[in-house]
Design a protein around this nucleic acid. Sequence first.
DNA 1: CTGTTAGCGCTTTCAT
DNA 2: ATGAAAGCGCTAACAG
Lengths: 335, 335
Amino acid sequence: MAGIDDVARRAGVSTATVSRALSGRGPVSTATRDRVLAAAEELGYVVSAAASSLATGRARAVGVVVPFLDRWFFSTVLAGISDALVREGYDITLYSVSADPAERRRVFEDHLRRRRIDAVVTIAIEMDAAESALLRSLGVPVVSIGGPNPLLTTLTVDDRAVGRLATEHLIALGHRRVTHIGADTTTNAASSVPALRRLGFTETMDAIGADAVFEPADFTIEGGSAAATRTLSGDVPPTAIFAASDEMAIGAILAARELGLRVPADVSIIGVDGHELGRWFGLTTVDQFARGQGERAAEAALAELDGADPAPGLGTLPFELVDRGSTGPVDVSRR
Amino acid sequence: MAGIDDVARRAGVSTATVSRALSGRGPVSTATRDRVLAAAEELGYVVSAAASSLATGRARAVGVVVPFLDRWFFSTVLAGISDALVREGYDITLYSVSADPAERRRVFEDHLRRRRIDAVVTIAIEMDAAESALLRSLGVPVVSIGGPNPLLTTLTVDDRAVGRLATEHLIALGHRRVTHIGADTTTNAASSVPALRRLGFTETMDAIGADAVFEPADFTIEGGSAAATRTLSGDVPPTAIFAASDEMAIGAILAARELGLRVPADVSIIGVDGHELGRWFGLTTVDQFARGQGERAAEAALAELDGADPAPGLGTLPFELVDRGSTGPVDVSRR
DNA sequence: CTGTTAGCGCTTTCAT
DNA sequence: ATGAAAGCGCTAACAG
């Protein structure tokens, strides 16, 4: 593979000039530039990432840390990040951290510290103070999506407000017996996404003096289905379910059908996400524009890289209620 | 951030010794090794990827090229790749190539050639001879999943056999009027995954003298739904549908319901993939174990890196019919 | 505008 | 078993 001095020789200039011509940094006469470009083109020369990175300190790559690759929300956000990064010529290095603590340590203490990336974006990774500090110590911009983290630049939807919005929607339809399906909060920080959604739910229910019933699940269709089955089979079944994700909401719809209940006539169901599948289930949801989140996070990271101030505190992301019919007025006879 | 000479100083040895101790290559006395390890640990030292890569020619990263990030099959294969790579301490660099030809060129001619990766895995990327040659010229192992490519090491299921298996399953149930929903083959190479599935279908139908009806769609739920609606609304609607992906098959099930048809009583439907959602639709499918494909591809790439012979021709991946009830005997009155 | 010359932070002979 | 020193392939002063 051709190196920079092959190009220099062919263009009849020094390697320094080649570097300047190719990078666009530093003065080069138009004539030389053209010769260099032509020579590079002919030789199929591309700058070596390692050499360039070592010399400049820039890697032209950003790291993305995700807990799952094969769940809709994460792959969708990732797609958004990728879009934004490709546009700017950056590569993306993927760090998938599983639940295994040893592996997680390796990612944080080894892989992320190899100085291979110019910035990092984390997607819904709940970090303790040590991990946050570790990211900070990388000396590169860090943008976190999901779950406000006072120690980092964060881009997040106001999940408490999301919880309120969904709950208020149900209350406005006359529902008073509502079950919230979400992640078991004891294993999550109080500021985590699931915890905030639940808080929004609880405070809204409290405000009208209604019971804030909770049923834990694991953010999958299966988990949502199981949780919905439990709550709908109880002594005093809810007239509505607010699931903290669309996947769980879809599981709830499937469970309701299984139990012979009509949606929304017998039970209203609302989710959160804007999952593409929701359309096919007529699922009412609070859309959070996942792909856009990814793009914005990537752009924020690059902006900070270009010297912009780290986003002031937390950037707030939009969300929106999308009514597709899986929620409706409570059946008065069941209230 | 600490560098290698910080560690050397602290351990009271030369940088050469530090390098040897940390990499495990070359002789180091146990005592010194321990001192070095301790010093590195205390300083939180991690080898710089750029410097190491420049010196050794190894980047400890593999590139993964995908056409989509946010579709089930791709994100699932990617998850499998990630699992295998993380185990071995490799980073993964993601190259998402969209339909835009200019962007595609940039990925192939620039990004992939930055010498940032020790191997590349492509997932269902159809490449022409030039692109294949370009990958070869990288001088690193290349493993391609999906679509036999004589120019590259390929890991692929026998999609023609998959097409036959699905079709034979329907024929065994008595179906003679079957529509195949797949990608418009005119825009795909004859050896592409969709083309081979269709070929398996066509030859099997031909063998029993039945019409091989085809309806094009784009591998999404929406596309499958539209295609199914068209074929089921025709003059002589099929008694069975074989969709080339589970997403399209699910779309077909939804379309059938919409038309008031029962599955499988009125129309049998079979897909291909093993999509997790299939369970919830009782979808019969030919599972191709996507996650396992990713792991095997990554392992093959690493093996080749370690000097193993490039996989002999093509590696063949397993597949299996999973009957979940969306196919059944043809209604004799409709035959 | 262009060339010369130090590095960037490691790894790897080659000596010792 | 260890150290000195020469690169790996580029970039960034610094001269000119």
